[in-house]
Amino acid sequence: MVSELTVLFRRRRTWAMLLALAAVPVLIAVAVRLASSPVAPGRGPPFLDRVTQNGLFVAITAMVVCIPLFLPLTIGVVAGDTIAGEAGLGTLRYLLVAPAGRVRLLIVKYAGAAVFCLAATLTVAVSGAAIGAALFPIGPVTLLSGDMIGVGESVLRSLLIAGYVTISMLGLSAIGLFISTLTEVPVGAMAATIVVSVVAQVLDALPQLDWLHPWLFSHYWLDFADLLRQPLEWTSFGNNALLQGGYLLVFGALAYGRFVTKDILS
């Protein structure tokens, strides 16, 4: 497990992706800072107009911007690479020669992807808070309900949001893991995972398919805003965790079935 994580986080690619994610809030903050006129409320991404008043909103705005594309993109790369990457490099055979067992390898690979989900969301949150604090005043945060909370509690809520987004990405990671066991071409698995996430979001946007919406893993992605209400709304957190758990079980089982019965040739 530890070696898996060190391999993952020693890769230049992982660092490049985290850097790109960290750049999103920086870009937003600098753009808002340099803009001559203040942002009109209701224009641009949600919360953008709050940024000038309170730097802590940079992290939240960045989260909204990252969730639909950037986060699934990086997670698709990591999750799609898990098994197929080893197969593509020809190292999968050697991994399985060691008396570790395929199930264990699968679990370790998935755990690595999950840790990356957490690292990615924390990167966005932390770099957003840091750049916000550097460029804008920091003060009590206005919640969606219009109530204000202190800086301490707002940090707590930011961490909760990071947790929520991490959980949101677990389902996609499981799908990526499964796709990764199907092929030996890592790029194919990565692309397929990203395509799946985009397709799910497109389906989620079609009102004609609203019976399907609660079953899409991307359905609750943007509902992290429920954590910014007063009192805290836990319903979507629970629904999301349940849904992602379901995806994890189903696709974990499929990946297991596929990987255990697969003939490893490379």
Binding site: L249, V250, A253, L254, Y256, G257, T261
Partner: peptide, 15 residues
Amino acid sequence: RLRTWLPVAVVPAVV
């Protein structure tokens, strides 16, 4: 082969 695929069928079914 059947035995290894069994949990694969059972878990989604349970869900």
